[in-house]
Structure formats: C-alpha cells, structure tokens
Write a protein that binds this DNA or RNA. Structure first.
Length: 268
DNA sequence: CAGATATGACAAC
DNA sequence: TTGTCCTATCTGG
C-alpha cells in the first residue's frame, strides 16, 4: 500500500511485465468497463510515477491513470489468470502475465492535456530527477501551517505520506507542529536529501525502513517496531510507546485531519 | 460477525 | 473540521 515509493516500484514492475506486448484489458467488477474496452489490445509504451500517481502510456495517446488511495492494491502473476477474487476494478493480461487492481481511488483513461493538468498540481517528487525542491521550499518558508501538513500537501511535496513525513521529521529533530516559515533553508535541504534517500531505498526494498545506524547510531541495539506496513520505524504508529532513542513517550497529534507521530524530547 | 482500522484525497460546511 | 468514497484485514465479543 501506497506512498510514493510503492508507486514508483509498481511503475517499473509493470513496465517489465507489459512493455512490448499487446495488453488485454478488462474490468471484472464492471466499474471500469468503458475504459477497458477503449484500451484493450493496446501496446504499452512506457510507465511512470508522479508522486502517488501511476501512469501507463499506451499507443495512441491513451494514458491509464491510477491512484491507489488508502486501500488500493495491485497484484500480479504468471498465466494462467486466476478467477477474480473480490472486487477487481482492472485486469491487464498479456500472453505471459496478469495484473489485477482492487480498491483504487482513481482508475481512469486520460489524454495528454489531462495528464499535464494532473502534473501541474503536483509538487516536487523526491523520487524524480526533474523535481524542484526550491519551489517546495518557497511554499513552505512563507507558510504558517504546520510542517507535517505542508509535507503531506501533494502540491508541495508529491509522494510522501504519513510514514515518511513522521519519520523524516523525527530524523531531523523537528516537531511536526512547527510552522513552515520557521524552517531554515539548511534544515529544508537536509530534510529533502534525507527524504530522497529514504524513498529511494523504499523503492529498492519495497518497504519503509527508517531506522539506520548510518543516521541514528543511538537507536542501534534497541528493537525498532516492525509495523504492519512491513518496515522498521521510529515513531509512526508508536503513540504511547517509548522513543527508541530517548525513551520518552511518543505522541500522536492530529494535524489537518491526519495523525502525526513524534517524540517531544527528540523533536523539541 | 460486527465494528474498527488503514501508508489518501476530495467535497461540503 | 467533518463526511464520504473505495476494499480488505484485523480486532474484540
């Protein structure tokens, strides 16, 4: 499930499974029937990810746009295709592989101009080489909104979610409640670099691990939490438990309708 | 087996 | 801020 690293990983994986072969498209659930009919038989030219948005570029300027949202999930395997389990919105098959999509927030066919509109409302993606972190800092540094909310704003930073935002602020020693305008350029630089490295590692590993001796030697020797999402983290969903570094109780605060986790001692 | 929960985003107040 | 959407999985009784 999805923060940006999952989507970038899916983009590469789908490219390797589908590129160069005619793709049959269906919607066993029926809710994407029209799009499936318009797409079937098309050749996949390329895939890419912008933040949490996945794009499949098919021949004929047809672009499949998927946003997993909170529950969306892809699964895949080799032929033969199993009967659909649950609500399969989208099924892609080649002579060799199948890919199923369930529970997405968005699954739609877009034109190139519509993709341009989508892209225009997304901020700097730490996983893309064309990202512009200076533009992100320009927004952050003139805002009185809490940092956690700013970093979760996809029009500022595209691709980071609750886990990465909570963890990167812990690692920076900055509380999630600090207003954006109080973040120095140097601190932003450090956060951006850390976020990019963490997310790249997330793409490689397929999970979020933020507890590293390289950055946080104090935490070594203590057992980090292995969250249900599969990674080892300092603060995410650890409210009420002791900080791995100093032992202080981890807090949870609701910012902009979403939870943020932090250590009041390590992030004063 | 009902209810709560989940890494997200948007509309409506 | 609250409610709604979408689906699967985990929790407690």
């Amino acid at each position: 499930m999805p923060e940006g690293h999952t989507i970038h990983r899916l983009a590469a994986h789908h490219r390797s499974l589908l590129a160069g072969r005619p793709v049959a498209v269906s919607s066993p659930q029926g809710r994407f029937a029209a799009g499936a009919a318009a797409l079937t038989g098309a050749e996949l030219l390329d895939t890419e990810a912008y933040g949490k948005h996945l794009l499949h570029h098919y021949a004929g300027d047809r672009i499949l746009h998927v946003h997993l949202g909170l529950y969306g999930v892809f699964s895949d395997g080799e032929q033969p295709v199993p009967p659909p389990i649950g609500q399969v919105r989208l099924r892609l098959t080649t002579d060799r592989h199948w890919i199923d999509l369930r529970g997405p927030t968005a699954c739609e066919l877009l034109s190139p101009p519509e993709v341009a509109v989508l892209r225009a409302r997304l901020g700097a993606d730490p996983l893309r080489d064309d990202a512009d972190p200076d533009a992100a800092y320009a927004r952050i540094s003139r805002s009185g909104i809490a940092l956690a909310a700013l970093l979760l704003d996809q029009s500022i930073v595209a691709g980071a979610g609750l886990v990465y935002v909570s963890e990167v602020l812990f690692r920076a020693g900055i509380p999630p409640t600090r207003p954006g305008r109080e973040l120095s350029a140097e601190a932003w630089q450090a956060i951006w670099i850390d976020l990019r490295e963490l997310m790249k590692e997330g793409v490689t590993r397929g999970r979020i691990d933020t507890v590293h001796s390289r950055h946080m030697p104090e935490a070594m020797g203590r057992a980090p939490r292995v969250d249900r999402h599969g990674g080892e983290v300092y603060v995410y969903r650890r409210a009420g438990q002791p900080c791995l570094v100093c032992g202080t109780e981890i807090l949870r605060s609701g910012l902009a309708g979403r939870n943020s986790y932090w250590c009041p001692a390590c992030q004063p």
